[in-house]
Write a protein that binds this DNA or RNA. Sequence first.
DNA 1: GAAAATTCATTCGTATGCAAATGATATCAA
DNA 2: TTGATATCATTTGCATACGAATGAATTTTC
Lengths: 152, 152
Amino acid sequence: MSEENLLKLVEAEEPEENDYHLQEQVGFILRKAHQRHVSIFAAHIADLTPPQFAALAKLRDVGETSQNQLGTLIAMDAATVKGVIDRLKARGLVELSKHEVDKRRLLVNLTAEGRDAIERLIPLARDITEETLAPLTPKEVATFMKLLAKLA
Amino acid sequence: MSEENLLKLVEAEEPEENDYHLQEQVGFILRKAHQRHVSIFAAHIADLTPPQFAALAKLRDVGETSQNQLGTLIAMDAATVKGVIDRLKARGLVELSKHEVDKRRLLVNLTAEGRDAIERLIPLARDITEETLAPLTPKEVATFMKLLAKLA
DNA sequence: GAAAATTCATTCGTATGCAAATGATATCAA
DNA sequence: TTGATATCATTTGCATACGAATGAATTTTC
């Protein structure tokens, strides 16, 4: 058998397609779905970003926490959460204090204004979730959320 | 009854109006799923980001295009795609030229090196997709991709 | 054909997002 | 107790991501 035919045979045994379609890849669609959600978020809540909202909502849940711990809870690394908290602090929505025992820790908590803000925004957040999932039927929503959670 | 159990009872009897859980919101989970994918991508392809890969993969599909048109195809706005293309150009993976007729347009195309790179990376991209979807069964993958596409 | 509207690209400003390096503090282990 | 590790936070650098403003070129409209 010629070298050329041998090559063809080897290629024929490969199950791989030559086609690669970017728009069918899960990463690409995930990025687009996320973009769409952020856009819907901004249309409902113009003065806060999703990460800023997440920080406030989580502080409402757990109360005072260290900056790093908050980052863990809302899936942000230390460098990212610092920027988010800095901006919330500049707007008076959170306040910072030093941990009395562990001097490394920077404690973060809602201010009264921050608490008012998050309570006021949560109903809008429900609308955002609803609009994001609007293309799906209720049954599809349940299925999708279950599967998405497995990937996160 | 202990004070602790009494507290539990009182809490159980309270109509729960604090029923907003960040970690159950589609936007939050979408963000985490995207983060996980990007992390998997970086583990397989260290020298290119997902947007850079997307640009090369799409140029492979469609050939020479204008920068804006490419942005539309890979869901990036004009400002973002400019930065991505600038960096790919600096690395010699794409080349730019002026449109002869429409002088507003900046044409983008793969260089020989860029074409080699994307052909070499596509098999790795298949692995990335596979690993991202690994928590799901094949049947779940089909369902998930169908529903995700509706949201993107 | 000229004014108006549109399109393409660039620039600026702001906000994630993360790797890596650094410094301060706390904890673990020999 | 001390030396090694680990944790918390900060800083720097780089890369998306997008709104808004701008300028250049094209198309539409009247």
